[in-house]
Amino acid sequence: MKESLDRRAALKQLSYLVGGAVATPTLLGILQSCEQAPPPLEWQSSFLSEDQARLVSKLADMIIPETKTPGAIEAGVPYFIDSMLDQCLETEAQQMFLDGLNRLNSLSQSHHSQDFLKIEDDQQTAILKKIAAEDHTPDEYSGFGRNPEAKTFFKQLKQLTLLGYFTSEMGATEALEYLQIPGGYDGCTTLIPGQKAWALY
């Protein structure tokens, strides 16, 4: 059952298919630099096509790259986004997302005559910044909860990436501080320099 296939399972599947190594952006870059057809997708997408899934992986990685802590790809975010698109987003929101992916490729084609995944890193960043600026509506959306649907593609992308990342085990326990059972409450602690935000709130 698809629901029971969690992101860790997806990750295991991923590392198996690429020969035991976890697919880092660098590794993906190497694979993509070959002139041959792109390699098969390392995880089974439900909603996105393989090309779309590769693009989404790249975008998630651009938003949350690997730093001192794992990035979006290692945390299984592309799989998460695909499952959210498949199971949670309404048709209209799905279409907005797909249109957004097409906008990226159209911009890339018109500026560089190549698809987004084939252009240089700085070119990709410039295009994603342009999309972010186009989709920026500062007062319209401020978070989840009672206002769950993002109104533009970039906010969808960011919402899904951040939600997937910060609720993943790696995101919650490595990028943030995860405290499942606090045991007590201290309302006024002194923030230690470098102290991470709590993963649960």
């Binding site: 790259p65 500062p138 951040l162």
Partner: peptide
């Protein structure tokens, strides 16, 4: 009252490594 979490950034345009690091601190 609480300190804002990572959701504070959804409405913003930024992304990438510095952005990610900023989100790991309380807002």
């Amino acid at each position: 009252a609480s300190r804002e979490n990572w959701m504070r950034s959804i409405k913003e345009m930024d992304f990438g490594a510095d952005f990610k690091e900023s989100l790991t601190a309380p807002g």
